[in-house]
Simulated scan of single mutants.
Amino acid sequence: MAKFEDIVKSHPIVLVDFHATWCGPCKALAPILKDLKNKMKDQIKIVKIDVDKHQVLSGQLGVRGVPTMILYKDGKQVWRQSGVVPLHSLVQVIGGYL
């Protein structure tokens, strides 16, 4: 995996989804994120990070539960939410940073 800092700086708006394969709510969030990408196209980059495979990074960022989404604008964290978030709410939040 590329350096995390490089990933969040690779696009003006990056949404990072911290998830786990065993997590039911994470599975519910997956199609919402797919719809979000289809709706927002190139305005956003979505990165999925498995907390079990990247425990050190998850710990450094204080990810205590999954799913946790962190939104970065120009490499800086601007929003963070744990749990499943509806599509319209994600579009509204991200739209505020475009």
Score class of each variant (00 low, 15 high):
residue 1 M to Y: 10
residue 2 A to H: 01
residue 2 A to N: 05
residue 2 A to M: 10
residue 4 F to R: 12
residue 5 E to V: 11
residue 5 E to Q: 13
residue 7 I to K: 06
residue 8 V to L: 08
residue 8 V to A: 01
residue 9 K to M: 06
residue 10 S to C: 06
residue 11 H to Y: 08
residue 11 H to F: 09
residue 12 P to Q: 09
residue 13 I to E: 03
residue 13 I to D: 05
residue 14 V to T: 12
residue 14 V to A: 08
residue 17 D to P: 05
residue 19 H to T: 11
residue 20 A to L: 02
residue 21 T to F: 10
residue 21 T to C: 08
residue 22 W to L: 09
residue 22 W to I: 09
residue 22 W to K: 07
residue 23 C to V: 03
residue 23 C to K: 07
residue 24 G to N: 13
residue 24 G to L: 13
residue 24 G to A: 15
residue 26 C to I: 04
residue 27 K to M: 12
residue 28 A to L: 12
residue 28 A to C: 00
residue 28 A to T: 14
residue 29 L to F: 12
residue 29 L to M: 15
residue 30 A to L: 12
residue 30 A to P: 14
residue 31 P to F: 09
residue 32 I to F: 08
residue 32 I to K: 03
residue 32 I to M: 11
residue 32 I to A: 08
residue 34 K to T: 09
residue 34 K to Y: 02
residue 35 D to F: 03
residue 35 D to A: 15
residue 36 L to V: 02
residue 37 K to Y: 11
residue 37 K to P: 06
residue 37 K to M: 11
residue 38 N to I: 05
residue 38 N to E: 15
residue 38 N to L: 11
residue 40 M to T: 02
residue 40 M to D: 13
residue 41 K to G: 03
residue 42 D to W: 09
residue 44 I to T: 04
residue 44 I to W: 03
residue 45 K to R: 15
residue 46 I to P: 02
residue 46 I to S: 01
residue 46 I to W: 10
residue 46 I to G: 07
residue 47 V to H: 11
residue 47 V to D: 03
residue 48 K to D: 10
residue 49 I to R: 00
residue 50 D to G: 06
residue 50 D to L: 10
residue 51 V to P: 03
residue 51 V to F: 04
residue 52 D to L: 11
residue 52 D to F: 07
residue 54 H to Q: 11
residue 55 Q to I: 07
residue 55 Q to T: 14
residue 55 Q to Y: 08
residue 56 V to H: 05
residue 57 L to E: 05
residue 57 L to V: 07
residue 58 S to W: 12
residue 59 G to N: 14
residue 60 Q to L: 15
residue 60 Q to R: 15
residue 61 L to K: 10
residue 63 V to T: 12
residue 64 R to L: 13
residue 64 R to Y: 02
residue 64 R to H: 04
residue 64 R to T: 09
residue 64 R to A: 10
residue 64 R to C: 03
residue 66 V to A: 02
residue 69 M to I: 12
residue 71 L to D: 06
residue 72 Y to P: 07
residue 73 K to I: 00
residue 75 G to H: 08
residue 75 G to M: 08
residue 75 G to E: 06
residue 76 K to M: 09
residue 76 K to N: 11
residue 77 Q to C: 02
residue 78 V to E: 03
residue 78 V to A: 05
residue 78 V to S: 06
residue 79 W to E: 14
residue 79 W to M: 04
residue 79 W to F: 15
residue 80 R to Y: 01
residue 80 R to S: 04
residue 81 Q to N: 13
residue 81 Q to Y: 06
residue 81 Q to S: 13
residue 83 G to A: 11
residue 85 V to T: 15
residue 85 V to M: 08
residue 86 P to I: 14
residue 88 H to F: 09
residue 88 H to E: 15
residue 89 S to E: 14
residue 89 S to Y: 04
residue 89 S to W: 04
residue 89 S to C: 01
residue 89 S to L: 14
residue 93 V to L: 11
residue 94 I to C: 04
residue 94 I to K: 03
residue 97 Y to M: 05
residue 98 L to W: 05
residue 98 L to Q: 14
residue 98 L to K: 13
residue 98 L to C: 10
